[in-house]
Write a protein that binds this DNA or RNA. Structure first.
Length: 672
RNA sequence: GCCACCUUAGCUCAGUCGGUAGAGCGACGCUCUCGUAAAGCGUAGGUCUGGGGUUCGAUUCCCCAAGGUGGCUCCA
């Protein structure tokens, strides 16, 4: 194996001791390890990197570890630039994160306008190629050196209390305190920061960095603490990588469901309705209806019974369920009707419980599965609503399975398999499971009800079944519902962002609260276990995710308009209308573009609407009794006899396939 | 809920250092009847998000509200 590296032997004493016999190699590190960081340079054999028994770990700048080091170093340069411009700014923490880094400061609020000046200063620091020099200090020295940095002092006292998003401490670690100095060529220390490291050898390694946004963030992520100003940036090994990243962000913005929702006329929001309350337009309605129809049919096939419940109920019901007071702040305030308080429902389970208990239940009926599209209302805080992915009226494809304790594991297994198969039917295949459990270290223990034994048992069942799927399972301690642990399904969209979709929750509390029971085979009264599950989580969110997943180019079966007829001139309208009529007889959704636009313009419009089939007819097709296809990918299939074309489209629509129709590729040279 | 930023025609955006506004697309009308991503000409369309204040005068400056964007916190 060989890597590309560049040399500077003066970085550390350890590095100086290594003579690799090559040029262009930069070594840096600390007492425990020496690291060679590679950039685009000459190729060096790794064997030459071992000297006098020292093992040198090579880090490619483009590797995850290398990028993380580069980003963390970029965070330092950001902080250095900020303190040069705003000397009163106090340092929080500055860890690397996915695709970049941030640094928190206590300072007057800044906005995007200030970022340009900071970036300019950073470029100057980078140009100076200031060396990052690691220094081990005693607690006393650290306290003395960081006397002007109150947040760092707090970290020194706590020895590493602050953690980055990934849970690791970036400031303090390994049992000893270290300070990194940024040293100029002439030996002056330009800046320093309490930091665990490691860092790149010098600031010149940070050659592709950009500040991206500002924000406020609570010190140590706790709402009770003061808010600091956070500056986010992105950094990459090369400028090309940075450009690629920026390009990816632009592409992601293009498929933003909020933008596509307007462009494709799927849904809208109106300030007179309220934040987070979507209005579904006819074309969005088609998608919603197709989703619901399919999901309803699948549920019925899987043994669920379709039920219906009202949107409001007397407040007492939610006290019985425990949602009040546990979930009070997520619910809308009470509606008063002559002294009787009603609430908009924030969940469907209490009402399903009442259907269960409406008559005596036998063990022979179990598992009993109720399902509905229940719209629930959650009073999300003003800052959190976002497009369709975070709304205040949520249509859940909600089901509750009531079963005997013995049946519970199989029911969970059944539900999980069902959920995964449904997601696959919608083209979502990149799936990660999350196991949300009670917070065992007790910080929020009062948020959960039930005995330790119940929790342990339920958690064990879910954990084992999650593992059975062979999918990646991520732990989410403290993320459980108040009544029990849950498995949630995170699906990735086409550009790799993950979204929480489905959820399967094990509930031993509500059956007790509602006094649910069934008569067992021995005549005794027993309490069922209840399993909540939502397959899409919310129809709205899933629709938003689907829009982004397909970038608006829905598979044929979901496309609001499946076929558009485009006449070359208006004299072919009647001919096309006839063809479209044949398709509609098979349930195909069609439109005829009879506008005054040129054919080219109509194609452009259909293309922008991402309609899967364009049927084009001019004189040639009209005379031949045929039509010509143009597919979304731009490919064509011309002169197709009408009957064949109708059959082709009909079959495609009926198949619910998720791939995209296109012209058959030419067979590769049949004669030769 | 917190911080920053944003809100001008249906959409995307100019503009006014305080003197009540403009383009492109879209819509509508007319002409053209055309073979695979934008024909030409014309017309209509705005209490410059809402309310209050400062001012002779506010779309522009200040305050409040609503809605949105990016984060934080939260998310059954």
């Amino acid at each position: 194996m060989s890597i590309n590296v560049v040399v500077n032997r003066e970085t550390t004493p350890e590095a100086r001791a290594v003579d690799t016999g090559t040029t262009g190699l930069d070594l840096f590190g600390d007492d425990r390890s020496i690291v060679a960081m590679a950039v685009n340079g000459t190729t060096v054999d790794l064997a030459t990197l071992v000297k006098d028994g020292d093992q040198i770990s090579p880090v490619l700048m483009t590797s995850p570890e290398g990028l993380s080091i580069v980003r963390h170093s970029a965070a330092h340069v950001t902080a250095q630039a900020v303190q040069e411009i705003y000397p009163e700014a106090k340092l929080g923490i500055g860890p690397p994160i996915v695709d970049g880094f941030y640094y928190d400061f206590q300072m007057a609020p800044i906005g995007p306008d200030e970022l340009g000046a900071i970036e300019k200063k950073m470029q100057a620091i980078i140009k100076e190629r200031q060396r990052f020099v690691r220094r081990v200090v005693s607690d006393q020295e650290a306290l003395h050196e960081e006397a002007n940095e109150p947040f760092k002092l707090e970290l020194i006292h706590d020895k590493g209390g602050a953690s980055a998003d990934d849970g690791s401490s970036v400031e303090v670690g390994g049992g000893e305190l270290t300070i990194y100095d940024n040293v100029r060529r002439n030996g002056d220390v330009a800046w320093k920061d309490l930091c665990r490291g490691p860092h790149v050898p010098h600031t010149g390694y940070i050659n592709a960095v950009a500040l991206t946004r500002t924000s406020a963030a609570y010190w140590r992520g706790d709402q009770r603490n003061q808010q600091l100003q956070r500056i986010y940036g992105t950094a990459w090994a090369t400028r090309d990588d940075l450009k690629d990243y920026q390009h990816r962000m632009e592409e992601a913005a293009k498929r933003d469901h909020r933008k596509l929702g307007a462009e494709l006329d799927l849904f809208s929001f109106h300030e007179h309705v309220g934040s987070g309350l979507p209005l579904v337009h006819p074309k969005g309605g088609v998608i919603k209806r197709e989703m619901e129809d399919y999901v309803r049919a699948r549920h019925i096939a899987e043994g669920f019974q379709y039920v219906g419940t009202p949107h409001i109920a007397k407040e007492d019901l939610f006290y019985t369920s425990g949602h009040l007071p546990y979930y009070a702040e997520g619910m809308f305030p009470p509606l008063d009707d002559d002294g009787q308080a009603y609430r908009l429902k924030a969940m469907n389970c209490p009402m399903h419980n009442l259907i269960f208990s409406s008559r005596g239940r036998s063990y022979r009926e179990l598992p009993l599965r109720f399902f509905e599209f229940g719209t629930v209302y959650r009073n999300e805080k003003s800052g959190v609503v976002q497009g369709l992915t975070r709304v205040r009226s949520i249509t859940q494809d909600d089901s509750h399975s009531y079963c005997t304790p013995e049946q519970a594991p199989d029911e969970v297994r059944h539900l999980l398999r069902f959920v995964l198969s449904l997601l696959r039917d919608f083209g979502m295949t990149d799936i990660v499971l999350e196991l949300s459990t009670r917070d065992e270290d007790g910080k929020k223990k009062d948020k959960f009800i039930g005995s330790d034994e119940q929790w342990a048992k339920a958690t064990k069942i879910l954990s084992e079944i999650a593992d059975e799927t062979g999918l990646k399972v991520v732990d989410d301690p403290g993320g459980a519902a108040y009544y029990g642990p849950k498995i949630s399904v995170q699906a990735s969209d086409a550009i790799g962002r993950t979204w929480q979709m489905s959820t399967i929750q094990y509930d031993f509390n509500q059956p007790e609260r509602f006094g649910l029971e069934y008569v067992a085979s021995d005549g005794s009264h027993q309490q069922p276990v209840m399993i909540h599950s939502a397959k899409f989580g919310s129809i709205e969110r899933f629709m938003g995710v689907l829009i982004e997943h397909y970038a608006g180019a829905f598979p044929v079966w979901l496309a609001p308009v499946q076929v558009v007829g485009i006449p070359v001139a208006s004299s072919f309208n009647a001919y096309l209308a006839d063809v479209l009529g044949k398709l509609e007889a098979h349930g195909v959704r069609t439109e005829l573009d009879a506008s005054d636009d040129r054919m080219q313009k109509k194609i452009r419009n259909a293309q922008k609407q991402k309609i899967p089939f364009m049927l084009i007819v001019g004189e040639q097709d009209a005379e031949a009794g045929s039509v010509s296809f143009r597919f979304r990918d731009g490919s064509q299939r011309n002169g197709v006899p009408i009957e064949e074309a109708v059959e082709f489209v009909r079959d495609w629509v009926a198949s619910r396939r998720n791939d995209d129709p296109k012209a058959p590729t030419e067979s590769p040279d049949p004669v030769a």
